[in-house]
Simulated assay, not measured.
Amino acid sequence: MLKGLSPLLNADVLYVLKSMGHGDYIVLSDLNFPSESVAQQTVYGSLLRMENTTSAQAAEAILSLMPLDTFIDNAAQRMEVVGDPNEIPVVQQEVQSVIDKAEGKHWPLVGVERYAFYDLAKKAYAVIQTGERRFYGCFILTKGVIPPDAA
């Protein structure tokens, strides 16, 4: 355990978050997502896990350290529900609340069609599989910048 860090953030996840640069993005996946096969195609190349967490718990831990990219409109994305792209399941509502709290304002989750989401995920820096069992608990978060301290 470290002071000030969520105990949900293991050493591998911390390494990846630190290694990412501005504009790199990670995938938070639920247990139904093809995480292992997609992760092999990412920059990091191996699946990371945050077991026994919901998508919202994992997002909260990650966003306690990683800012979202303010230069783009889709720094936070969600997998759309097949057949009803405008539906926002409870799991996505929870992550929306976490994002809004972390960013201090409403930051809309942009919907991405299922197969387009898979294609984006393969280009991610890494995939982090959560313990989320609810459907559509899959998200893409793009890393922003932390400005220098004022002189």
Score class of each variant (00 low, 15 high):
S97Y: 00
E60C: 02
A102I: 01
A11V: 08
A76R: 10
Q57W: 03
L28T: 01
Q129W: 04
F33C: 05
F71K: 14
V38T: 12
L5I: 14
M79Y: 05
V82S: 15
A116T: 12
L120Y: 13
R78N: 03
V95G: 03
A150R: 14
G23V: 09
Q77R: 15
A102T: 01
R114E: 01
S29Y: 09
N86S: 13
L120M: 14
L5W: 14
E132I: 06
Y44M: 02
K101A: 14
I62G: 01
F139E: 02
F71L: 13
A11I: 02
A126F: 02
A75M: 07
L120D: 09
L9W: 02
A116R: 15
A76Q: 06
L141S: 00
M50P: 02
V27P: 01
V82F: 15
A121L: 07
D73T: 12
A124H: 07
V16S: 05
L8T: 00
E132W: 04
Q77I: 09
V43S: 02
P67Y: 06
P7Q: 10
I128R: 03
K122D: 07
G144C: 09
G131F: 07
R114V: 05
A58S: 08
S6D: 13
E94C: 06
I62K: 04
A39G: 10
A124F: 04
Q93N: 10
F139R: 09
L63E: 04
W107E: 08
Q41D: 11
S6W: 09
G83Y: 11
A56Y: 06
D69G: 01
A39R: 12
L141A: 00
Y118T: 01
P85S: 13
E87Q: 15
L68V: 01
S35E: 05
Y25S: 03
I26V: 09
G83K: 13
S46W: 08
V16H: 08
I88N: 07
L5A: 12
E132D: 04
R133Y: 02
L14S: 01
D100E: 11
G137L: 10
I72M: 11
T42W: 08
A116M: 11
V38S: 09
I88R: 14
D119R: 15
F135W: 04
L109A: 04
G111K: 08
P148T: 12
A126H: 06
E113Q: 14
K101W: 00
Q93S: 13
I146W: 09
C138K: 00
N32T: 09
Y118Q: 06
F33Q: 06
E87P: 00
V90N: 11
